[in-house]
């Protein structure tokens, strides 16, 4: 049938609301006298109706929770912001104590040099402090304005301020590892430490209240 091809294009243009008035008229006139095209057109419209009749299904109820579990770990900064929001009293108290001691900003600004906690078996090479392989460093290690490379063991926590921490696969730290790299983090580090002390003084009441 010669009519098919062009008319079928019109049908689709009609279904997409993209047909001109003139072509629509042509389509209508043709459909009135051509049963084959009429059937074709009805089948198309029925197909659409069938596809659209498929009901909307919903995601499983635990969907959001499953997604959230799979997300990469949250950045420290916002964890902190939320913490500050949830502990306003403690934050104010800590900030007050930090500022009163006056040590915070001066200790940040004044000292661009590498400094490190005093353990005898730490090795210093340029701006990197090394826990040598086979050595066990006792107590918390704090490195400021420098990097820390852990090949051996640290029996305690590690804090690297304004530097980076590299840990060899054989390296081992028994306590927590913390990197502080910006003034903001630096303040946070102080506030949190002070807050922990404040919390120890006032007991556990604050944590219970915020749950």
């Amino acid at each position: 049938m010669k009519c098919q091809e062009e008319i079928v294009v019109y049908m689709h243009e009609y279904l997409d609301d993209e047909i001109s008035a003139e072509q629509e008229k042509e389509l209508r006139e043709h459909l009135q006298q051509c049963p084959d095209c009429q059937t074709h057109f009805h089948e198309l419209k029925r197909t659409i109706a069938l596809v659209q009749s498929s009901s909307h299904i919903q995601a499983p109820s635990d969907f959001t929770a499953s997604v959230m579990v799979r997300l990469p770990k949250e950045k420290k900064k916002v964890g902190m912001q939320r913490w500050l929001r949830h502990h306003p009293l403690l934050t104010a108290a800590s900030l007050f104590i930090v500022l009163m001691t006056g040590s915070l900003l001066s200790s940040w600004n004044d000292d661009p040099h590498l400094s490190v906690s005093k353990q005898p078996n730490l090795v210093i090479e340029n701006d990197t402090v090394i826990v040598p392989a086979g050595e066990v460093v006792k107590g918390d290690v704090v490195v400021k304005n420098g990097n820390l490379k852990i090949d051996g063991q640290v029996e305690g926590s590690v804090t690297v301020i304004n530097g980076e921490n590299y840990q060899a696969s054989a390296g081992h730290v028994t306590g927590e590892i913390e990197e502080v790299n910006e003034l903001f983090d630096w303040m946070w580090y102080h506030i949190k430490n002070t807050a922990e002390e404040v919390m120890n003084i006032f007991g556990e009441t604050e944590t219970v209240k915020t749950q």
Binding site: S54, I57, A59, P60, F63, T64
Partner: peptide, 28 residues
């Protein structure tokens, strides 16, 4: 960096996205 805010985004779009995927893939 506020991860909690993303939970709300997921809630808003989960059904639509799941539905598209279901129709495309044909199984839940």
């Amino acid at each position: 960096g506020d991860q909690d805010a993303y939970a709300e985004v997921v809630e808003m779009y989960k059904d639509k996205v799941f539905h598209v995927c279901f129709r495309m893939l044909g199984n839940r």
